[in-house]
Design a protein around this nucleic acid. Structure first.
Length: 228
DNA sequence: GCGACAG
DNA sequence: ATCTTGTCGC
């Protein structure tokens, strides 16, 4: 059914090389998003279920407007660099069920800060034809200098001389996050949007809420202990 | 050959 | 990512 589930490593990489050519590192004309979404996926240790969550918030007040959670089955293993094949299918399905379509999505994962410049956020953006920003909690590739301690400070993430993202301090005293443009997005716009989404926590509000919602459905629907 | 390695 | 309570530090 799902062709993606049948892809092997080499085939998946070939598909990424095709998709990466469709990535646009520039936002739409006069881009000023009022609706922003957060996307995240959680897993169950026992069964092979995965839970995707999308939340839509209003900008700049960050009011929650809609929450969409959906349950799926794992069809691809986790392989660094190929996360999209594991998480994108369910997130795409969830997106199609949204009543309110956002102007941009903050994704829990990398954008172009990826070996082939096509991380989960970029992959989703191309598939859905929407602006996306990669917002990861840790590094996949690239090197960077220490990030200053104050909120909003950052240091460029590069691979060789190429800038692929930035490491952002979202709050004083906490580990910085890794931000990179996904699709229909540039560094400057990504930075400005990120700052608008900070609400006193390490993670920007859209991604933070999506994470909470993904965990909530898992707690509610995953197999209860002792009921094998 | 040896590490690194989003979630 | 997931399994998990209390506990240390800003």
């Amino acid at each position: 059914m799902d062709k993606i589930a049948k892809l092997n490593y080499a085939q998946a990489v070939i598909l990424q090389k095709e998709l990466c050519q469709k990535v646009i590192l520039k936002p739409p004309p006069n881009f000023s998003p009022q609706l922003i979404a957060g996307a995240d996926v959680s897993y169950s240790r026992k069964d092979s279920k995965i839970y995707a969550a999308l939340v839509v918030l209003n900008l700049p007040d960050l009011t929650l407007l809609e929450t969409k959670t959906i349950i799926g089955e794992t069809t691809f293993p986790y392989i660094p660099g190929l996360l999209s094949f594991r998480e994108a299918p369910l997130l795409i399905k969830a997106f199609r069920q949204l009543q309110i379509k956002p102007h941009v999505i903050l994704v829990d994962g990398q954008g172009i800060a990826h070996p082939r410049r096509i991380g989960l956020a970029s992959h989703l953006g191309v598939c859905l034809n929407i602006s996306t920003i990669g917002c990861a909690k840790s590094r996949l590739i690239g090197s960077y200098q220490p990030v200053p301690p104050s909120k909003g400070s950052y240091s460029l993430l590069k691979e060789g001389e190429e800038v692929i993202g930035f490491v952002l301090r979202t709050k004083k005293g906490v580990k910085p996050i890794f931000v990179s443009p996904g699709h229909l997005m540039d560094f400057d716009t990504a930075y400005k949007i990120l700052l608008l989404c900070l609400k006193g926590y390490r993670l920007p509000e859209p991604t933070r809420l999506a994470h909470i919602e993904a965990n909530r459905v898992r707690a509610k629907f995953s197999s209860p202990p002792g009921l094998v």
